[in-house]
């Protein structure tokens, strides 16, 4: 292991961070904007609203992101109508294809996460809002969604972390984000340990920062941090202790 190479490649790969972050946050934003209305449709008791959304989330969560990305990047060009449309300007660009794939994929997961939170909101909260005369839209915006979002924040945080990691697939369609740069560097130097480790360190840094951010957000939104399962652990350790 060459420590100097590890350090210098960390610095080189750091220039891929902006693209990784751009891909992450842009898809995060788009995924969120899509997921909010979709999750309400998915939570609806009306079948004609919920079933199409279920079909979407089922397909996007049931197939690999890599296939989705390749369908968008390589596949759509096979359709003449798309090639000749104005959208082609965007769809032949790997960046926009990644953005589209990551947003649609992330939105599918986020929709199901939000749906769970929405359905778990106590009916009493909604009745109290109806009783003061709020409109259905006001109730969704001001009562249901904020309560649901708080309750699913840990799952949503995991989803965001997954998205950071998912952006590494952008390297398969020639983008030079952290992973793309590291693959390029490895093919030039053939020092995979140092370079992929350096890339791993950068991703760890990003995921740690995000985890910290979400922990702080959770503590802020929910008051004091939740008590840990301390007593159970103690009982368990006694069992292990006697083994």
């Amino acid at each position: 292991m060459d420590i100097t190479l590890l350090l210098t490649s960390t610095v080189t790969l750091a220039s891929g961070i902006p693209l990784t972050l751009l891909l992450t946050f842009a898809s995060l934003l788009a995924g969120f904007v899509l997921a909010v209305p979709l999750s309400f449709m998915r939570a609806s008791s009306r079948k004609w609203l919920s079933l199409p959304v279920l079909a979407y989330t089922y397909v996007f969560r049931g197939t690999p992101l890599l296939v989705q990305l390749f369908i968008i990047y390589y596949g759509l060009g096979q359709v003449g109508a798309i090639r000749s449309s104005v959208l082609w300007v965007l769809l032949r660009d790997p960046f926009w294809c990644c953005l589209l794939a990551f947003s649609l994929n992330g939105a599918a997961y986020t929709t199901e996460i939000f749906r769970g939170g929405i359905q778990a909101v106590a009916t009493g909260m909604i009745e109290a809002a109806q009783a003061v005369g709020m409109s259905p839209l006001q109730i969704k915006r001001r009562i249901i969604f904020p309560i649901a979002f708080r309750s699913v924040l840990p799952s949503y945080a995991n989803e965001v972390i997954s998205l950071v990691k998912a952006t590494s697939l952008a390297s398969t369609v020639t983008l030079l984000e952290i992973t793309g740069l590291s693959r390029k560097l490895v093919s030039e130097t053939f020092a995979p340990y140092e370079i992929f480790l350096a890339a791993g360190v950068l991703y760890l840094g990003l995921t740690f920062l995000l985890t910290g951010f979400f922990n702080a957000l959770e503590a802020r939104l929910n008051g004091a941090p939740r008590a840990k399962a301390h007593t159970r652990r103690v009982a368990l350790q006694q069992v292990t202790h006697e083994l």
Binding site: S171, P192, F196, G200
Partner: peptide, 17 residues
């Protein structure tokens, strides 16, 4: 905390080396 792809690449190319 690390993308699966990085782990795969590390093990494949690292192993090869």
């Amino acid at each position: 905390g690390v993308p699966e792809l990085i782990i795969i690449l590390l093990i494949y190319f690292g192993g090869t080396v």
